[in-house]
Simulated scan of single mutants.
Amino acid sequence: MAARSEPKALAAIQDIKSKVPNAKVEFIEMDLSSFSSVKKGVDDFLWETKLHVLLNNAGVFCLPYSKTAEGFEIQFGTNHMGHFLLTKLLLPTLISTAKACDPGTVRIVNVSSLAHNRTETITFDDMHDENGSKLANILHAKALSKRVKEHGIITMSLNPGIIHSGLWENMSGITSPMWEIAKYCFTTPEVGAYTNIFCSASPKVTMEDTGDYYVPVGVKGAGKMHKPSVAASDDELAEKLWEWSETEVAKHGY
């Protein structure tokens, strides 16, 4: 379990083990807003020789404007660039794992959100749009799927639903009464994880579905293919983002 907060990660691991005593879960410190932290986290993991599922689930939301260590807007830098580098560094292990597995059992899953609909494109010379990172999650999965499909790896993106989590604590303009009402419209983190698990492990997802975008189905529905926004369906934009991202991580030696 990669996380930037050790106390929160250890608490989550303890909760898992209280329910599944034999579960083997270890904490790897990793801050997706820092390339050096991502690299160290990958180095700490790579004593493992196999990786079957990479779930790119880190995210920040509604933060005051700031920049990552590498100079990217904090939300785009964390939500997209951090995941892009993490996936790039782990790809050799994912590919080698896939060689010994049935096609489609090794997967890369990007967690996006409804916020991707609020961005019509990605402006590469002005990365200040906080919603662009969620669009980038879908485009990254789309471009990546074309590059790893030949290895039998499935790549997809998803919207887990509107979840009552700590992300909303940074939202300004919500008064206490409004927040109490809004919370009833949100789903729990447990239910919010269903689509993540479905995309990561369900045999109903096959190689034919690689590159697709999933949304929740009902209160306890696991996942359903859905057409994302026009921008998120743009193959040309996906390729442009891929090349731009490759160039940017290369500038920092990765």
Rank of each mutant, 00 (worst) to 15 (best):
R107L: 06
T155Y: 02
S133D: 12
P103I: 02
A136V: 06
L91N: 01
L89T: 04
V109D: 00
G104L: 05
S96L: 00
L139Y: 07
L158V: 04
K134T: 03
N159R: 11
L89I: 12
H116V: 02
T121N: 05
H116I: 09
R107E: 09
F124E: 06
L86Q: 14
K134W: 03
L86Y: 12
K146V: 15
S113H: 12
A98C: 05
L90H: 05
T93L: 08
D102F: 08
A141G: 15
G104P: 00
C101S: 11
V109W: 00
A98D: 00
I122Q: 04
L144R: 11
L158W: 00
D102W: 04
A143S: 15
H140N: 13
V106A: 02
S96Y: 01
T155H: 01
R107N: 08
S133C: 14
D125P: 01
R118P: 01
A100L: 14
V106M: 02
A136S: 06
L85Q: 09
I108T: 05
L158K: 02
G132D: 10
K149F: 09
I108K: 02
D126T: 00
K142W: 06
N110H: 15
D102H: 13
P92T: 04
T119L: 03
T93K: 08
N110F: 11
S96M: 07
T123I: 08
A100S: 15
M127Q: 10
L114C: 00
K88D: 04
K146G: 14
L89Q: 10
S113A: 14
L86S: 10
D129V: 00
L85S: 09
V106F: 01
S113C: 11
L135D: 12
D125E: 08
V111F: 05
F84C: 06
V148D: 12
L86F: 15
K142A: 06
N131P: 03
P103Y: 04
R118Y: 13
T123R: 08
M127P: 00
T105N: 06
L90T: 07
L144Y: 05
L158A: 04
F124S: 01
G104R: 04
L135S: 14
N110G: 13
T87Y: 06
I153K: 06
L90M: 10
N117Y: 15
H128Y: 09
F124T: 08
M127Y: 04
N110D: 12
T87A: 08
S145R: 08
H128E: 13
I138R: 00
N117A: 09
I122F: 10
A115P: 04
D129P: 07
L86N: 09
I153C: 13
